[in-house]
């Protein structure tokens, strides 16, 4: 890799880190000035966080193999994940069960 490209890697890395760290410093300053810590986050920003997570969910739901098998496996895996989450309200087991069911559907239909 040329030294110019290394400079590009460093610039992209530094820029990405600043995009992640500077808003924290801004928010920490707001929190220090705010008498009520919980009210310091602007409402639009508080809503944006969960919207971003939901958007990432939508993007990740698209199966890498876009076929009937891929979509059915995604549907079955998602249903089991949600059903188990509803019952357990935990993080680990619903994900494990979802992946297992996804895999079983892929094997059966392939």
């Amino acid at each position: 890799m040329s030294s110019a490209l290394w400079l590009g890697v460093i610039a992209a890395a530094l820029g990405t880190w600043l995009l992640r760290a500077l808003p924290l410093l801004w928010m920490q300053r707001r929190l220090r000035r705010s008498p009520h810590r919980t009210g310091a986050l602007p409402q639009w920003l508080a809503a944006l966080g969960p919207m971003m997570i939901a958007a990432v969910l939508g993007v990740s739901l698209v199966p890498s193999e876009q076929s009937v098998t891929g979509w059915l496996a995604t549907l079955a895996g998602s249903a089991i994940t949600l059903a188990l989450w509803w019952r357990l309200r935990s993080l680990g087991w619903p994900v494990v069960a979802g992946v297992a069911v996804f895999g079983v559907v892929v094997i059966i239909l392939s």
Binding site: L57, S60, L61, L82, S90, V95, V99
Partner: peptide
């Protein structure tokens, strides 16, 4: 599929 499954359980409580 572990990623969408994880995001599902993170979004569901909201």
């Amino acid at each position: 599929f572990a990623l969408p499954a994880l995001f599902l359980v993170l979004v569901a409580p909201r």
